[in-house]
Design a protein around this nucleic acid. Structure first.
Lengths: 347, 347
DNA sequence: CCTGGCACTCAGAAAGCGGGAGTGCTAAGA
DNA sequence: TCTTAGCACTCCCGCTTTCTGAGTGCCAGG
């Protein structure tokens, strides 16, 4: 870890803050004026020269000011950044958004929009994989003779549903019975567990299994299979906010970035990475390891249900983002979401 | 309506097709070569001059080729365009996408992604308002003493759900009973209808109403209320495809366009407009009436459930899109979706 | 070790300059 | 009367040139 004189630190901090504020390379003169430093531009130039040697800042070209490098940003967030608490108004407006009695799935999805709105960057949310959750109940509902609606409820209140087309018509009574048998057998076990049992049950296909239960198993298996290949567990909102940043307006890069938002693969990996440890994590530029994100920084924080990390929320923006503000917001959001999802929580 | 000599029509058609293909203003010489015309560039220039007077084409500047105006495009799609059927391969790949046993809601949502993939433009989908649909069944499921999951199933197989927090704990048996009573009273009626009755029931709050039914009404009312203020009924996908078109790469316009995708207000109005009549509709540039869309064309088609128009699918792209292809795709998609959503449909 | 001074560098804007694509017009030919 | 070849003209585009100003590095004096 680099160590700097207090003066150099102060200067670096001022420089980065200035650059974050207006995106222009900052020169010695402006820096002195803006930060109200008590030494001269020439001195500042000397110090900046040192900082450049350390790889913390660089000039885009000979006679421009200096710009932070990724290392500079990293040093900044690691040791210079004082994360100041959000003002109470921001806090209140965030809290408001978690007071609704929403279906948890929808609440989670809405968080990406929330984050993008308050940060004016792109918000992302990693939705929990449902496999580990407990299975609560299965219902069959006849829509028409050939179409049966299967509703599967998990213990955390998430609901999955799917229309299936059984090979022969079933009466409502038969369906009811099938559901009862099924629920009796599996209620309370984890989805993963149920899934494994189902696969085994289908393979063995034992004679002693009642016809109706086998149908239930088949149907439910379809639902699980659908869940498996299912929708991407990642939501992105507010991509268009990023168009406001000139440093991201290179069309080719922009396209790559937006493609990454659509493909979701890279982001998903990044968010999975951030699920292993608690608290806010920050990936600056190439640190993420993904080319499409090399002009961006990503700030993430995992959220929990009943003490167990199940997903991640985050924000994607240009490297020159207001880290202090963004960090506070992401952190608070993750905690509010955890609170809203955990049991024993009153509405 | 303008009327043109057959030669002029042929020329205009060739010019627009050429311009759609490569986005460059097209001059008399290239036009002769490209379209294999049997007259000379000079003649072409004369005809182009006429077309320009009619406002169908224009030069961006003195010595560039010609570019279609909106009027030109309009004439093109109205009278010159022979919508050729899609090749069987495209048809097959589209049809494939509608064969899955999906929850209708999800199927509808996925169509915007489908459209954006096959057209390489932005796909949009207007989701049905649910109020008119018939109500099928309500279920209460106890998640914890203070949290009850309400599951509402509509006759078209759509499922809405929401966690509510009743004022006092209810036993599973009570909940079951409430659901039974409720379903007995309302099953088969339209959501709109149920909603109205609920409001009335709550107001009157009659003594003869059993306590448990009243709770059911209250809970269900919460669900309906949630549905009311509910999520935006519009889905957009593949916005990033539009970044590939240089004519849309003006940052300011792009930003407006993407903001329109996020705000959804304008698009929603446009799609509602297109729901009033059947078949494909095309809005070229300013025809849509929305500033953000003035560099774009929008192609839409409504889809139906059991003969009733309930929503719209569409595509947003630059004015120079392959109208024939896009029209075919949007049309077919709308029809496949209608088929997949209508009853009596085998899987 | 700080600071004023000074020469130097270089991006970016403004200006100048072909080259070339494409036009409109005219006059001759069918 | 319609078509076509010819030709002068226009004006965008890409190129180079020039100029300016912001900012630097370095030196020498405090």
């Amino acid at each position: 870890m680099v160590s700097l004189t207090p003066r150099a630190e102060r200067l670096l901090k001022a420089l980065i803050e200035q650059y974050i504020a207006d995106g222009q390379p900052v020169g010695s003169r402006t820096l002195v004026k803006q930060a109200g430093l008590e030494f001269s531009p020439a001195t500042v130039r000397n110090i900046m020269s040192d900082l450049e040697e350390l790889g913390l800042i660089r000039s885009p070209h000979t006679s421009a000011g200096r710009v932070p490098t990724e290392r500079g940003y990293r040093f900044f967030v690691n040791t210079l950044l004082a994360v100041k608490p959000l003002n109470t108004q921001d806090v209140a407006s965030l809290e408001d958004r978690f007071l609704t009695d929403q279906d948890p799935q929808q609440l989670i999805e809405s968080v990406s929009g929330l984050l993008s709105q308050v940060t004016r960057l792109a918000g992302i949310v990693r939705v929990p994989r449902r496999a580990g959750v407990g299975f609560l109940q299965l219902d069959f509902l006849s829509l028409s003779p050939t179409r049966v609606l299967v509703i599967l409820v998990a213990q955390d209140g998430q609901v999955m549903n799917r229309v299936i087309h059984p090979k022969r018509p079933y009466s409502p009574a038969e369906l009811q019975q099938a559901a009862n048998v099924f629920n009796g057998a599996y209620s309370g076990r984890s989805l993963e567990d149920v899934r494994r049992s189902l696969v085994k049950a289908l393979r063995r296909d034992s004679e002693d299994m009642q016809q109706i239960l086998r149908s239930a198993v088949e149907m439910a298996h379809q639902v699980f299979a659908g869940d498996e290949r299912g929708e991407s567990p990642l939501f992105v909102s507010g991509e268009s906010n990023l168009l406001a940043f000139p440093e991201l307006s290179d069309t080719e890069k922009l396209r790559r970035l937006f493609d990454a938002f659509t493909a979701k693969q890279d982001l998903l990996h990044l968010l999975d990475q951030s699920m292993v440890s608690q608290g806010v994590q920050i990936f600056i530029g190439a640190e993420s390891g993904y080319e499409a994100l090399e002009s961006c920084s990503v700030v993430t924080a995992p959220y929990e249900v009943d003490g167990q990390i199940v997903g991640t929320v985050g924000v994607v923006g240009p490297k020159r983002m207001s880290y202090d503000r963004v960090i506070s917001i992401v952190d608070l959001t993750a905690r509010l979401l955890s609170g809203a999802l955990s049991h024993g929580q009153a509405g």
